[in-house]
Design a protein around this nucleic acid. Sequence first.
DNA 1: ACCAGGTGCTAATGGGGATTAGCTGCTAAT
DNA 2: ATTAGCAGCTAATCCCCATTAGCACCTGGT
Lengths: 357, 357
Amino acid sequence: MVGRISRKVTTLSRTPAKRPTQADIARLAGVSQATVSLVLNERDASIRISPATRERVLTVMREWGYVANASARSLAGGRNKIIGVYTFEPVFPTSGVDFYFPFLLGMEQEAAELGYDLLLFTSAGGERQIFRDGSTRLWHADGALLLGRDPNVEEIERLRDSGYPFVYVGHREVSGPPVSYVAADYAGATKQLTERLFELGHQRVAYARIGNGGAQPSRDREGGFRQATPYQHLAGPVWTLDSVAEVDGLVEELQRGGITAVLAEQQLLAEELLVCATRRGLSIPDDLSVVELGDSTGARHDGTAWTGLIVPREQMGRQAMGLLVQLLEAPDSGARSESVRCGFAPGATVGPPKELP
Amino acid sequence: MVGRISRKVTTLSRTPAKRPTQADIARLAGVSQATVSLVLNERDASIRISPATRERVLTVMREWGYVANASARSLAGGRNKIIGVYTFEPVFPTSGVDFYFPFLLGMEQEAAELGYDLLLFTSAGGERQIFRDGSTRLWHADGALLLGRDPNVEEIERLRDSGYPFVYVGHREVSGPPVSYVAADYAGATKQLTERLFELGHQRVAYARIGNGGAQPSRDREGGFRQATPYQHLAGPVWTLDSVAEVDGLVEELQRGGITAVLAEQQLLAEELLVCATRRGLSIPDDLSVVELGDSTGARHDGTAWTGLIVPREQMGRQAMGLLVQLLEAPDSGARSESVRCGFAPGATVGPPKELP
DNA sequence: ACCAGGTGCTAATGGGGATTAGCTGCTAAT
DNA sequence: ATTAGCAGCTAATCCCCATTAGCACCTGGT
């Protein structure tokens, strides 16, 4: 590339043949490369450069449009003001888009405010691996935000052990030393929603999900539900379904058990509950209150105004970015984590139980 | 940072103190660092390494989990495999999001396929300038995609003159040497849509826009309209309104002029036409056919199924990325531009004229 | 006159890898 | 016996920057 350009330049005789290096600037300003570097990264400490020299160097830099080479800088241990964003699932096979976009939005906004640029790591060939074929490209960025519902835990641990600074967006517990993360307060929100149901007079409240409940967000929500239950010393059954096909059976169980309110982990499940309940002549929320807990994976978005929690994705993105930058700028503090309050959707699928027994 | 890590390691004694380098591998395999490098980037050509040695080196690399340092690599090689994305308007004050996102989507997909990562430049402080304070961060990336309806032409020219490789997403003509761009074929699509109106039997067709028609996409569309007109040797009036307030007057003009079909540059304009026409007792498409030309700036998205063109934003993003990578990988080819065919929305706002005179 | 104690700057080094000129053996041709 | 030629590898250099040890100079004190 350099070759190309310089050849061009000899004929065009305009613009620098290649972008200037510190050495170039140094020569032009009549100082040493080291001085240029020192001027550039104004360390507070001991090393002093006279205002006159500093000004001269800065002028030349401006004049020639000097920009530090990111690679050289990170090789030498410097900072680039670049934050990487890495998602474990591909963001862009469209299904993921709606989910991930708000996170990116928040990150971008915060990054802009803090003066960082964003490096989006794309997944070549669909295999989502940080340590792809060996070369971890993460190092181009000063630090990274990691994102994904189903991350490769082993890779996270490896990354943590490597000392690379990162923040996980979402509740993330790993074995060994903890990692930094920013999570939505699913537990708190679910607890509150459950308590609200009790306050409305519901006597039997259930919790249901589709798929295994092993993922952290799933566990957090269930935890919140269980914490709320003692409030009314009423045991709430928790169902874990394998697929939507089982929802109809679930509704039957609910009826039989005299349950008047359900918390549905997934919006998809809530939607199916609505269908099945309607088919059985139950109306929502009159006969059955349904709370939707914000997991919109695979949802049909049928337009129902669900009562439930709103995942504060944008805010999570912002906050994760903020936390990461803090970690970067205040070295060797250990892992930290923050929690973000969930939003609340009033919706129209919760009401008092039909008749108090 | 490295310092921190090694300190940790001495106490934790887990994971290699640092990731192994080529020098480490070389020592362990009893060869030179150069040999390791050669084994790694199997150049087809001249330099030969015996299969035995190659195997030995590979084994050691595998054993020790060697990973190339991306920074060092690009420092030495000059390439980052990073493509910058720069938008002239801020993407994220939400209004822009819907507009820009499809572009990003296409870019990301194509980048992933080509093995490039994306560097998103965020705008610190809202001032959107490439040459912020004289330096350009663009150089972090091998090349960049530029995006924006209302770019700073001067900056584009300056960038072109600097020899930095970039592709503009959208039709972009500048003074002096041309720049590379990928544009939607607004002209062709508008021409086709206009001709379709004639084929349906319309005798007088008009073109309308809000705001000045100076922007390139605007000019392209009008050009297409004018090209189609001779098809039926019927002159079509072109109106340029200052604001939506004038739409009602426009409808009056249309009625008076016996015009039975309009091409509306902006969706917003189309929406207003619908309102005003309805108010005057005209029905769409029976009394008036309306074609919407894909500029959804400020649209209310009232749910109308407009007949018109669809801007192939995702495809444009893909193609721009592809073009840029070509430019990067096939040196010193000059500026190139490509055109992307627009989509067609059948919609329900176009029909034959009510009565042939 | 001599030293202590700054100040302002530079030379040198290292960071990890790509590249190239060139060096060693060895075989085959003369 | 020489030499040409080649396969197989290495030493050396460069990429651009951050960092540190230390040099040269100057001022003020004794």
